[in-house]
């Protein structure tokens, strides 16, 4: 089982990401938005944890009514330069009040962890899983932010 960073700790991952063709299995699973939309009924009866995977191409707003069904939303970063899911994470937290786990997957590098966490992402499958301990330090790259962020909802200008 692979290790991930969750809530600033290295933990064993206990989720399985199912392809659209893969048979359903017991335990915690994530599916693509397409599969969720097609197999809504069946998946609703799944006994383990259920998560959904979204990329910046997927229509976030379409799954908002279903968010209560998911314990995990996985945001895909096909390239670290694709910043769309930073906005998705913020919207999920700030606007749609999603309280479950939000995970970054794909080209997720140490140097993006600080910004990702400020946007509300709390677990990370790093592209290079060999440097997890080192990566933990990245959360402390900065001790302050000017902006209103998910971790600090009051912008600095109201706190100084």
């Amino acid at each position: 089982m692979q290790q991930i960073i969750k809530d600033r700790e290295i933990v064993e991952d206990n989720w399985q990401h199912l392809d659209d063709e893969a048979a359903l299995v017991a335990g915690n699973i994530t599916v693509s938005i397409t599969r969720w939309q097609e197999q809504h009924e069946t998946l609703s009866h799944h006994e383990g944890g259920l998560g959904i995977r979204l990329s910046g191409d997927d229509p976030l707003e379409e799954i908002v009514p279903d968010l209560g069904r998911f314990q995990l939303v996985v945001l895909l970063f096909p390239a670290f330069t694709d910043g769309r899911c930073y906005s998705y994470a913020r919207l999920l937290r700030d606007r749609y009040n999603f309280k479950g786990e939000i995970r970054a997957q794909g080209d997720v590098l140490y140097d993006q962890l600080f910004y990702m966490s400020q946007c509300g992402i709390n677990s990370f499958e790093l592209a290079n899983p060999n440097r997890l301990t080192q990566a933990l330090a990245a959360f402390d790259d900065f001790s302050e932010s000017y902006q209103a962020t998910v971790l600090r909802p009051e912008p600095l200008f109201r706190r100084r």
């Binding site: 330069t81 906005s87 910004y115 000017y146 902006q147 600095l156």
Partner: peptide, 11 residues
Amino acid sequence: QWSTFHPEFAY
């Protein structure tokens, strides 16, 4: 100040 290190708009 708002734009410096804006976590959402770095990419």
